[in-house]
Design a protein around this nucleic acid. Structure first.
Lengths: 266, 266
DNA sequence: CAGTGGTCTAGACCACACT
DNA sequence: GTGTGGTCTAGACCACTGC
């Protein structure tokens, strides 16, 4: 217990990281709370605390790492701001999950032009297929795999109020999702990311999207019940798990005649 | 100096807000730092401190409001997180501005498919017109005006690497932007929001966007040098100033053959 | 060097949820 | 009541900027 931190004043018991001086290049000063944050992140990655579970209390963590409660607090604050943890006053701090009513569709930006999400009822999902294949070079690169590695390709449609609205192609590393098949997907009640989390321990933390306006192929047009001349909103997404590890590639074709993609710029 | 805060322990000199008890309905507890935040916000709204200027130091503000530095700090932290203020260690805390190289295009999400923004050079702007008209009902509603109030309608194109890529229609309350005309716009070097800020004291803080895939009219197609069968990405934006006041409505039609709209989901 | 934001501590007390 | 997160303070010291 004790070591590291540079400044010579406090020497808490968090791993070992020499801070300033000595090193030839950039001193790369890292405050204590950042180091605590990394330790907490490691525990999350390692699955030490699972989604929906409470992590130890701030006081407990402060004792464990030999720092003050305020320092632990600041580390947790940042993790909460990044949606990795959820604080609940009086109850504790919990590992974020896609399996909570409130954040169930955290990554869903498609909204009906009129009315609310709930007023339309839930989307009707239809799994068209779930096939296993060998990863082509481009997909392997995006997912951090080797070309030829096992890949799952899921295709599904989502119908809103009876109208087919979204056609999604989803690619996943087969290694991480053993046993996933069309039947699993069709049966599961709830968001797909909730399933990934519960059944495969894969928690999506962040995603990057690229949007384009495109025309559908004949096949795509048919599945969405539109003509091939109908402009569609294509959303390509890469989703990342804890350590910025790419886990999923998804390409959605969205009809935007009754819906739109909503975004807030801060 | 002194009054308010409920808890009976500290009684700093921030306005006057009774917190808990007494009130019939919800006590609506509001922590001190939130009240400080509101005071700072009011100063920003009132233009007491202008963009790029430094606000008083934390210690100074703490003295002024009769609270501890940590409390002021937390208020500023939130305003910085909302991009209203920018902290610079060793120098001070500054009012955010769209006229900084680093954040010049804070609201721009269109990116070239290959290369970086800068590698393509700046976009070539072309103001097609800047007309004054009377606000129709729908636009008045969006901008918080009365139907028939003065409205400015700007139309411009943006060309990237010689290719016309964006066609924008912009609507502004004429009252807030007196004297704005095509010549002003054409001449000004820099982002339009920078102009608004410098010349009209209007600072955009937040925006909401709705995206759809559409087909252009004949006229729009011609301006973007595409066929009327080309799918385009339509982005409708409402921009807000300090107190959530709508200030601008903008509809952009984007070619997405060489560019895409980028978004990050957290 | 002085001044600013940034970190860290230790302790008191409040608000909230459970039991 | 007990335990949790949330607020607030006072003070020390560090890191960065600029005179």
């Amino acid at each position: 217990m004790s070591s590291f931190n540079s400044t010579g004043r406090v020497t808490p018991s968090v791993g070992a990281t020499v801070n300033r001086a000595d090193a030839i290049d950039a001193p790369a000063f890292s405050p204590l709370y950042q180091q605590i944050k990394q330790v907490l992140l490691a525990s999350l990655q390692a699955g030490e605390w699972r989604p929906l579970q409470a992590i130890p209390s701030e006081i407990e963590l402060a004792k464990r790492y030999g720092v003050s409660q305020g320092t632990v607090r600041k580390a947790i604050d940042e993790l909460a701001a990044e949606n990795l943890l959820v604080r609940r006053q009086g109850k504790g701090t919990f590992v974020a999950s896609h399996d909570e009513r409130q954040v169930q569709y955290r990554f869903l930006r498609l909204r009906p032009d009129t009315g609310t999400l709930s007023s339309q009822g839930r989307a009707t999902r239809n799994i068209l297929h779930c096939k296993r294949l060998r990863a082509p070079a481009d997909m392997a690169r995006l997912l951090g795999l080797n070309a030829g590695d096992g890949l799952l390709h899921i295709r599904r449609t989502l119908a809103m109020a009876g109208t087919p609205t979204v056609l999604e192609d989803i690619w996943l590393s087969a290694g991480k999702f053993r046993g996933l098949n069309a039947a699993n997907l069709q049966i599961y009640e709830g968001a797909m990311y909730s399933l990934f989390e519960k059944q495969y321990g894969v928690h999506m933390v962040r995603a990057e999207e690229e949007l384009r306006a495109v025309l559908p192929t004949e096949e795509q047009a048919e599945l969405l019940d539109v003509t091939p001349q109908t402009p569609l909103l294509q959303v390509e997404r890469i989703s990342f798990s804890y350590n910025d590890q790419p886990v999923e590639v998804r390409r959605a074709l969205n009809r935007t005649d009754k819906h739109h993609y909503h975004n807030t710029l801060g």
